[in-house]
């Protein structure tokens, strides 16, 4: 039996129905606190990526980050594991404690 496809948890505002990346505050669009989690497929498209040659203290160089667009246009900033993905690359995303990590999906 194959494992269920991986998911990430996103949030939806019950007042304005906007989906967004979970936050410790209210809905970033309308300010409502009536927020529910929902599961989304853990695949997204890279819409920007960068490689820092001088990362913040405590991070190995180079440190790679990608801005990833998930289903319903929810965006997240992920640490890239592996080579820097170009814009348009499909990546799998997972939550790792307080951060997200992205890895390029093997091609078909």
């Amino acid at each position: 039996m194959s494992a269920p496809p991986p998911v990430v948890e996103l949030s939806r505002c019950e007042a304005c129905r906007s989906p967004f990346l979970p936050t410790d505050g209210p809905c970033p669009r309308c300010g409502s606190s009536d927020v529910r989690p929902f599961s989304s497929p853990a695949l997204g498209a890279v819409i920007a990526s960068t490689e820092l040659t001088t990362p913040a203290e405590g991070w190995p160089a180079p440190h790679r980050l990608a801005l990833v667009e998930m289903p319903e246009s929810v965006r997240l900033l992920a640490i890239v594991d592996g080579p820097l993905p170009v814009v348009g690359t499909i990546v799998s995303v997972r939550r790792d404690g307080a951060v997200y990590r992205a890895r390029t999906e093997p091609g078909p």
């Binding site: 936050t23 819409i47 920007a48 990526s49 960068t50 820092l52 001088t54 990362p55 913040a56 203290e57 991070w59 440190h63 980050l65 801005l67 900033l77 992920a78 640490i79 814009v87 307080a98 951060v99 997200y100």
Partner: peptide, 30 residues
């Protein structure tokens, strides 16, 4: 300086190792 300037960014993005130049680079690319 990098650490203290990043204090004006969102903590969840700093937690991922974002710095001011990193996010400026993402904006530049867009």
């Amino acid at each position: 300086n990098t650490r203290d300037l990043a204090a004006s960014l969102h903590p969840s993005e700093v937690a991922a190792g974002a710095t001011m130049p990193a996010l400026a680079a993402i904006i530049a690319q867009r």
